[in-house]
Amino acid sequence: MELAVRAAAPSCSSSPSLHPPRVPCRLGRSPGLPLPARRVALAAAAFALDPFQEIKTELNDASKTEVFACPVCYEPLIRTGPPGMNLPAIYRSGFKCSKCNKSFTSKDVFLDLTVTSGMKEYSELKPARTELFRSPLVSFLYERGWRQNFNRSGFPGRDEEFQMAQDYFQSVAGGILVDVSCGSGLFSRKFASSGAYSAVIALDFSENMLRQCYDYIKQEETPMNTNLALVRADISRLPFASCSIDAIHAGAAIHCWPSPSNAIAEISRVLKPGGVFVATTFLSTPTNSGPLSIDALRPLRQIVGPVNSSYNFFTEGELEDLCRSCGLINYSSKVQRSFIMFSGQKP
């Protein structure tokens, strides 16, 4: 156990907040106690002397779904409050990084794990295609007509897309799934209700999308103790420990991301070995990309992109190259007109 190791190991720091006071030598050297018993005694004494050990022990004994990490330094967050990944437990909990001392709360209906969380003076704007979805109006309309229009481009619809994704995720059933750029939780809620995962994290940068997701959860009478958490985070700075997530889903999202390469590199970082990434998007066509859909003109995006606020659309070859360059293997895809669902796996 971490507690026993820390109590027995010598400390290089004098900070009382990070290390317990020294235990009297006679406790660890008592000739009447065998080595295992001496370690237990050391651990018990350290626990009694260090109030922070209560938190650490709770983390050790908590559900394996405790995967949140600091978006600044990626160190695991210390959690105070009830364990669990459901909405009431997250809402009543506080989170703090033991390394950089940054605190995170869920004072709203979601847990804000962005780098800018808690800042009072500094504000940061994303590209227009990202900021659009932070609008209350767009968040309200997303499931009330906006998403349904994707059918014109070949998207098969919510139920079929969900089942297609589930087929890709069969090998990681029972694990933790993160629905990145979840929007109003169109698929997050279905993943959570399916019971196929130990926990589902609905993650988006838009505060209003997460609020809409919460409203839908209440309207659908989804039990509040369902293993579903709402988290605000940046796709290029995922607040999870490396190799901690089993499955990641990104529905109709990659064309909105400021830097798809940074995002997929982050996805690759947090996936466990064998973990699966599944995403859908629009393939580049003359309709949505104009002349830039022609292979010979694709390099011009480097010139046009910085002054163009429209979405980024890719060819299938580009998507496969992107996944492979970020360390994902076993790439596969399904295409229907300009709709594509593609998948990669962490080796």
Rank of each mutant, 00 (worst) to 15 (best):
L203G: 02
D204F: 03
D204I: 00
F205R: 05
S206V: 01
E207W: 00
M209I: 05
L210E: 01
R211G: 03
Q212N: 15
C213D: 13
C213I: 05
Y214V: 03
Y214M: 09
Y216H: 13
Y216F: 14
Y216L: 12
Y216S: 10
K218D: 13
Q219H: 11
E220W: 13
T222E: 05
P223C: 08
P223V: 10
M224L: 11
N225C: 04
T226N: 00
T226L: 14
T226W: 01
N227Y: 00
L228W: 10
A229R: 03
A229F: 05
L230W: 14
V231C: 08
R232H: 10
R232Q: 11
A233C: 11
A233G: 15
D234Y: 04
S236C: 13
R237I: 00
R237F: 02
R237A: 14
L238T: 00
P239I: 02
P239R: 05
F240R: 07
F240K: 01
A241V: 12
A241H: 13
S242W: 12
S242M: 14
S242A: 13
C243Y: 15
C243W: 10
S244L: 06
I245G: 10
D246H: 15
D246K: 07
A247T: 09
A247M: 14
I248Q: 01
H249Q: 08
A250Y: 03
A250D: 06
G251R: 12
G251A: 08
A252K: 06
A252M: 14
A253H: 04
A253V: 06
A253E: 04
I254L: 12
I254W: 04
I254Q: 03
H255D: 06
H255Q: 09
C256N: 15
C256L: 13
C256Y: 01
C256T: 13
W257G: 05
W257F: 15
P258H: 11
S259D: 10
S259M: 13
P260G: 07
P260A: 11
S261Q: 13
S261N: 13
N262C: 14
N262H: 10
A263M: 07
A265R: 06
E266W: 05
I267F: 03
I267V: 13
R269P: 09
R269H: 06
R269F: 12
L271W: 01
L271C: 02
P273H: 11
P273M: 08
G274T: 06
G274E: 03
G274P: 05
G275R: 07
G275I: 05
G275F: 00
V276G: 02
F277H: 08
F277Y: 15
V278A: 08
T281M: 02
T281P: 03
F282L: 14
F282C: 15
L283Y: 07
L283H: 00
L283Q: 02
L283V: 02
S284T: 10
